[in-house]
């Protein structure tokens, strides 16, 4: 039983962070149909920037976090402006290729500034063990869950209730109609990329806090794929639920079955679910009126 709770909590942590990374991915896909292969690098940058702020400049972590978010907004806007806007009207596949290039570029920038050696992260959230129903878990992991849930809640609220959020979903539905009501599609794309960068870099900071910073962080980006395909590429709730399912699945198989299988299990389940629901658990079915 302790093992179960232990695994559940660990899985939830991973899942919540995965969900944050997946959220940005879904958002970009939803707004512009682009599959962003650089999402993992956004995580990487988030982790390293927080590292730079907290460990190298010695800032208090809330301040470091705020600066990281500001940098993420800037990064998203710059990427949209310099890389994607010139590609408006080009085939989607070109844009997707460009994001692959972007991922190499971002990785290179990080290793130029911080080098290739993994670095221990001065945990800004203490990892004092907490005892929950017999299982022990680091406080940092609990905090990661809390922060991720709060962020996901804020994003959900933003998309459901705020005018900008609704406009963003409108653009995802029909760009030209959105344009005809005065919604600036360019601005919305910039927003989408910025929010994607924010959520990924917060995710990155949370991972970094637990395992330290290294280039490995960007591999988190790959693990986002089963999450988004499972949840539905264009569904925000799907990203959240998908993230948690994959997170739990990985730790359960890792804990109960054994080594290595935890890497495979998510993909096996993924195939099963796609057989039943080809557009993902929450993906939008194409609305057809008969």
């Amino acid at each position: 039983m302790e093992l179960f709770i232990q695994l559940t909590l660990t899985g939830l942590t991973n899942g919540a962070i995965l969900a944050l990374a997946a959220l940005g991915f879904v958002l970009i896909y939803k707004a512009s149909d682009v599959i962003n292969f650089a999402q993992g690098e956004f995580l990487l940058i988030g982790g390293y920037v927080v590292y730079g702020m907290v460990a190298q400049f010695g800032l208090a972590w809330p301040l470091g976090m705020l600066i990281t978010i500001a940098i993420a907004i800037g990064l998203g806007a710059v990427v949209e402006r310099l890389v994607l806007r010139p590609l408006i009207g080009e085939p989607i596949i070109s844009v997707i290729m460009v994001t692959i290039g972007l991922s190499s570029l971002l990785k290179a920038i990080v290793s130029t500034i911080w080098g290739n050696q993994p670095k221990a992260f001065p945990p800004f959230i203490p990892s004092t063990p907490v005892n929950i129903m017999g299982a022990t878990i680091g406080a940092d992991r609990l905090w990661a869950i809390v922060i991720a849930i709060v962020m996901l809640g804020l994003f959900t609220f933003f998309f459901r209730r705020s005018k900008e959020g609704i406009a963003m979903r409108a653009v995802a539905d029909d760009q030209q109609a959105a344009l005809s009501m005065g919604i600036s599609v360019k601005k919305i794309f910039a927003w989408a990329w910025s929010i994607a960068a924010i959520s990924a870099s917060i995710g990155g900071a949370l991972v970094a806090n637990i395992v330290g910073v290294s280039q490995e962080l960007s591999h988190f980006g790959l693990r986002v794929f089963p999450v988004v395909i499972l949840g539905g590429l264009d569904s925000i709730p799907g990203a959240i639920v998908g993230g948690i399912i994959i997170g739990l699945l990985e730790t359960y198989t890792g804990g109960y079955v054994g080594h290595g299988l935890n890497q495979v299990a998510p993909f096996a389940i993924l195939i099963l679910i796609l057989m039943v629901r080809p557009y993902g658990l929450f993906g939008q079915e194409i609305i057809e009126r008969v």
Partner: peptide, 8 residues
């Protein structure tokens, strides 16, 4: 052709 936002 109306062009409503279908998923909203």
């Amino acid at each position: 052709g109306r062009r409503v936002f279908e998923h909203l």
